[in-house]
């Protein structure tokens, strides 16, 4: 009875909160989840032994931390029961229940979540994914139809200008169609056009061959009071203009907008096609597929993160309850 009273005391809530805060701070001061060698290199063998003894290198997943949270949840539970009896503010009761729901949900996540990886080439069919080195079956087939990297059209181009007679270099961040004067000279220039994949077709016409910046180029108009010239400048090749006093270099920076994996899921007769993007995962049968990585050297390969987390719906419910409870609390208070 005495223990129960201690466990349900508000004073314990405050003490536990303070301890949790301190433990969390400690966990950000000591880097988490590095290899033993890295710790020894950074802190020396003795300090590493202490870290290891107290499980400080994986603090947030240690038994002590779990026990701390469990105590906190239990204390919260008892306090909530007491509040329920005295029929206090409903909003507050909901917020306290929501924290218990969130903590239970995260416990489910910690125990039951499957989180793995699936690397796949265009045209390849996969029926499993990897957690670490181990393979787990998916119970359906997934095919990668197409993987593309989407790029932004740059609105600022970085250009270096070299004047041969003065042996001087200038740097510009130039926008389309804006006029730039080269200081101390008569020269000025502007960018007339940008093409991300410059190509000359059979009829001799300049076209944009794709939407990938495979051969980015800008068309410049270079002016002096006497002359006017149009010139293509390429990021990848640099043809020299021997008869001209002015040379331009195009420092192209590609800006990735999104990664898109178009996949097909096949289960028996059922076929589902969807495009996975960074902020748009694919959900199917409790599995969620996320765009996780790509390899610039293998443009037809994509890396998907696979996760199945029965805890998340519970946590999400807790989030909703928490917000409802807090708003309810404010409605009642009417500040």
């Amino acid at each position: 009875m005495r223990l129960l009273r201690l466990l349900s005391s508000p004073r314990l809530t405050l003490i536990l909160l303070a301890i949790i805060i301190l433990v969390l701070i400690l966990g950000t001061l000591i880097p988490q989840g590095l290899s033993s060698q890295e710790y020894i290199k950074k802190y020396g063998i003795n300090l590493f032994r202490i870290f290891n003894f107290f499980k400080l290198t994986n603090l947030y997943h240690s038994f002590c931390f779990f026990f701390l949270l469990f105590l906190f949840a239990f204390n919260l539970f008892l306090c909530t029961l007491r509040n329920l009896k005295s029929r206090k503010n409903t909003g507050l009761i909901i917020t306290h229940i929501s924290i218990i729901v969130i903590l239970s949900g995260s416990l489910i996540t910690a125990i039951f979540r499957k989180k793995g990886f699936l690397g796949i080439y265009e045209g390849q069919i996969k029926e499993d994914f990897l957690i670490g080195e181990k393979s787990f079956p998916l119970n359906f087939k997934i095919i990668l139809e197409d993987f593309t990297v989407e790029y932004y059209e740059p609105d600022i181009h970085q250009l270096y200008v070299y004047l041969k007679d003065k042996d001087k270099k200038f740097f510009f961040k130039a926008k389309n169609l804006e006029n730039y004067k080269i200081p101390g000279t008569d020269y000025s220039f502007r960018i007339l056009k940008y093409i991300c994949d410059f190509f000359i077709d059979e009829s001799g016409k300049i076209i944009n061959k794709s939407f990938q910046p495979k051969n980015p180029a800008v068309l410049l108009e270079i002016k002096t009071p006497q002359t006017k010239e149009e010139r293509w400048i390429f990021a990848k090749e640099r043809p020299r203009h021997k008869d001209s006093n002015i040379e331009f270099f195009y420092d192209f920076r590609e800006l990735i907008k999104d990664y898109k994996s178009k996949v097909k899921i096949i289960e028996g007769e059922k076929v589902l096609t969807k495009t996975i993007r960074v902020n748009e995962p694919l959900k199917y049968k409790g599995y969620i597929f996320y765009q996780a990585s790509y390899n610039p050297e293998e443009p037809d390969w994509t890396g998907l993160q696979v996760s199945k987390d029965p805890g998340y719906p519970v946590v999400f419910l807790g989030f909703i309850l928490l917000v409802i409870g807090l708003f309810g609390n404010f409605y009642k208070k009417k500040i």
């Binding site: 805060i21 969390l24 950000t28 995260s106 989180k115 748009e280 996320y290």
Partner: peptide
């Protein structure tokens, strides 16, 4: 959870946001 596939990763910014919230 939508973007990284996990609603909590103990990333330092997350942890510090939680610490602030707890204080």
């Amino acid at each position: 959870n939508v973007c990284w596939g996990s609603y909590w990763s103990w990333d330092p910014k997350e942890t510090w946001a939680l610490i602030t919230w707890l204080i």
